[in-house]
Every structure is written in structure tokens, then in C-alpha cells.
Amino acid sequence: MMRWLPAAVLGLSLAASAAQPTVRLGVPPWQGAEAKSAVVAEILRATGYEVETVSAAAVLIFQGLARGEVDANLSAWVPGQEEAFGPRVEAGDIVILGENLRGARTGLAVPAAARRSGLVSMEDLEAFASELDSTIFCIEPGSGANAVAEAAIAEDLYGLGDWRVLPSSTEAMLTHVERAVRRDRLTVFCAWAPHWMNEAFDLAYLDDPAGHWGGPGATRVLTLARAGLEQDFPQLAEFLSRFQVDAESQSRWIYAYAREEQPLERVARRWIAANEKTVQDWLAGLQTPAGEDAAEALEQAMARWPTSDPN
């Protein structure tokens, strides 16, 4: 369950319970972040940790990391969110443990039918300003996707100086996109991979000649930790630094969770069971908080999972 923790709980150090420490994962309200955090949470629970999920906007999670109220976050997008957490990294309040996603991308997209109308590149947007109401539909305020689009407007890139970003929830934006695709109407919106939208909708990413959204490999997703986590719990920090998946895997998690409405725990356990070798590699040589072999602890925990989960 995603929730804000009481202040009294947030004030406790992860070290408060040495036998079974509690890891506080900061999770923004994005389906990809929720699914990825669920996979990590199941692995951590299997290897001797309690896990609390702190659900909040990304900027609040970065603040929580800097204050030591959140232990880790798996959804720091670069370059979109770098301005929000970068200064705290430079100040030593947040630590980058590594990248956790391969094949990520961000950009502006339109229904694929729009390409037949000549809307192929971001350079074409100005010519379609009236039909698009000079509006880019996007997601939650403070998200990296919004920040990059807002920066393009502020710089008058592609003639977007008098445009606006219309923020909303991810769900609301995708409902708008689904309606536009179904009715064959023009719209432009913030899009990214991994996400189920790339499978569910017939959409096209607009060319970005200026490279504002970055080319191949420019989009990265980082794992962040509070300062001191590596010293307090080196085994935990090492696991988090090793955790990395590809965009296709995460898209499948999101599809199962968001479109098929499978419980996150079930999605996570099924993937872990089907990819046990990968997970064992992440845990190789590591120990649980009780000093046991982490890979063996995972295997024992999986044996106790209901047989309907991993099949």
C-alpha cells in the first residue's frame, strides 16, 4: 500500500531495528515507479527487510531523501528531474547508487494518424498551434516530463514560446490520449518508455532536431539514496546499485498492473520467479541483515509464496 508515513515513523533511522530494518522507498504516483518499486520491495522482504512505501510527488521525495526521511528512490529521471535533485547530490545530502533502467526514452508524441497530416517533427508544432490549442498535455506537476516541456516553452524552442503545458494525473492524460486516438483527433502529449501506452495506442514520437529531449541513451533513470545509507547498510546499498532492468520488462509490469489490474505483489512475484537467475545475480555474495546468504533467503521465501503467484 502506498501512503505517507506518520512523522514519528519518518523520524526513525533505518537502523532503528537492526534485526529487521525498515527500508523506506520513495515512490511517486507513476505506474512504472510503482511497479518497479514493488519488484524491489518483494526482493527486500524476501531477504530480511521490512519495506514501507512513501507515496508523494517526486520533488517531495527528493526533499525526504535529503532530510534522511526516505532511504531510496528508483525513479529519478535524467535530464528531466536533474535540476530538482542535482543540487542535493552536490551538497552530499543525496547519493546516486546507479542506473536502474536500460532503453528509457522521453519525448512528445501524437496519434500516429497525425503524421499523415504532416505533423512529424516538433518543428511542425507551430503550424498546428490552432488545432492543438497551443497545449501540450502532460502529467503530475514536478515530473521530469513536465519540466523538459516547460523548459522548451521558456526557451521558445520550436516556436513554442506562447504554448502551455497542461499538467494532470498520468491517468487523466492517458484517458485524454485514448479518447483522441479513438476519435482520430490531433493532440500532443508527453510520452515515455517504458510504459504500456506504447503498446496500447497507435502513437508516434515527434522528431526532435534540437535534441532537447535527448537522443538514444540520453534519458537515464537513476537509483538515489539518502546520505549515509551506504555506510549504515552496505549490503542493501550494493543490491540497490546492482538492480537494473530493461524498458521492455518494466513495460510488461506496467501493462499487467495498470491494464490487466493485477495486484502489484503478484506482478512482482511472477517476474521474480520467472527471472530468478537475474535476481540471484543481483544478490550474489550479499547477506541479509541477520547475516544469512541473501540468495538462499530469497529461494526460501519464494518456496513460501502461494503457488498461484509465480505461475
Rank of each mutant, 00 (worst) to 15 (best):
A204K: 06
G80L: 07
Q280R: 15
T175K: 15
W282H: 11
V165N: 03
R67F: 13
T223Y: 05
R182V: 00
D232K: 14
S117A: 14
T47M: 10
L236T: 09
G217V: 10
L229P: 02
M302W: 13
A268D: 03
R259P: 01
Q250W: 11
R179S: 10
A237V: 06
G64H: 03
Y257N: 05
S143A: 10
A225F: 05
V70I: 14
R24Q: 07
E171T: 15
G80I: 01
G26E: 01
K277W: 03
E276G: 05
W305V: 02
G285S: 08
I272D: 04
V181C: 14
P306I: 02
R88T: 00
L119C: 07
G64W: 04
F239G: 00
E238L: 13
G285I: 10
Y158R: 11
E248N: 09
G228I: 05
D71R: 10
L60D: 15
P111Y: 08
A145I: 00
A19S: 15
L5D: 04
M302K: 13
R226N: 04
A225Q: 05
L222Q: 09
Q235V: 00
L222D: 01
P111W: 06
R270E: 08
R226G: 01
A7Y: 14
E126P: 04
A112T: 03
E265W: 08
N198E: 09
G142R: 05
H176V: 02
L160K: 08
L12H: 15
S308V: 13
V177S: 06
P306L: 06
V279F: 04
G103C: 09
F62R: 02
N73S: 15
A104D: 03
A19P: 07
S17V: 11
E150V: 02
D162S: 14
V40D: 03
A274M: 03
V27D: 01
D246Q: 09
N73L: 11
Y205N: 10
V89Y: 13
D309A: 12
F239C: 00
E42K: 11
I139C: 06
A58R: 02
A72E: 02
I96H: 01
P234E: 04
R269T: 09
A237M: 09
L236C: 07
D232C: 00
T223M: 10
G291T: 07
E248P: 00
G98N: 07
A301V: 06
T47F: 06
V9K: 11
M173E: 07
P289A: 04
C190I: 01
E82K: 11
